[in-house]
Amino acid sequence: MQSFEWVDAESVEQAVTLLGESKDGRPVVAKAGGMDLLDLMKGGVLSPHRVVNLKGIKGLDGVRFDARQGLELGALVTLSRISREPEVRNRFVALSEAAEHAATPQVRNAATIGGNLLQRPRCWYFRNEHFHQAGGDDLARVRDGQNQYHAIFDNQRTAMVHASTPATALLAYGASVELVGPGGKTRTVPVSELLLPPDMKRPRDTVLAPNELLTRVRIPAPAAGTRAAYHKQGERESYDWPLCDVAVVLQLDGRVVRQAAIAMGWVAPTPRRATEAEKLLVGRPVDEELARQVAKAAVAGATPLSKNAYKVSILETVVRRTVLAAAKA
């Protein structure tokens, strides 16, 4: 890890001003929990000349629920808190489950929702300093190499997948984020538009500008009859990155589905909505047979790589089970 300067930002405005600078090609980066940042710095993938500490900024660690406005999470709220907070557990269970199953208890105590969304991919080529210096065709390297954890959809341009698992739940809930830039210029971006396909040659995989800060995450208030479920499938039960994760949010009228959202993470460069599968659910009661059809539709069109065809059948099973779990929730 190269040495760097440290500055404690006291306000969003001050942080944004500091983030605009850079020196000798080494960037100024923002730090909240610092989990992904430290990993990238230790790996030699990122060498900032200055780190702007956001933890001292007041007012970014709140959890607020309002029956009309919905849920608002400050960017500095930790994953532990999201997993414990009653307002989140009771009303947005797919999100609290995603937070609870991310990383280790130690990491969840430090990791923030803002930093989690802005993580770089866990692709082992991406995490290796060598491949950033080697140049060449990043996609060809993955296609010809160890691609068992890579994308099974939309993998013609990149096969890396976004790392955030809470993003999967947030996508299903139709969440958005607030981004603040210079002069307090604020914009709201849906999570579906925030994340971009990962790219080794870019400094970030989101639409966030270098001098913008992600300040808040918002989820609209759930309609009456909303049910949700989340499942992260790993190779083992204890701490690991997922093979895939699925969040299902259903709005039910009795047993009949009025609206459905199925979000699938770690199977495409960005979390993916299973739109055709969702259409099958609308207007019908959920049962085993329907869940089976929905799951089949969710994996239709998959284009697995040389070593990850197994993810297609795992995803199909996880979608089926999560749809059933949401209907029973």
Binding site: W6, G34, M35, L38, D39, N53, K55, S80, T104, P105, Q106, V107, N109, A110
Partner: peptide, 15 residues
């Protein structure tokens, strides 16, 4: 850290 478990290898001393 303040009574909660923390991974000290991923915690900067300044934090």
């Amino acid at each position: 850290l303040d009574g909660e478990v923390a991974a000290s290898c991923m915690t900067l001393a300044f934090d």
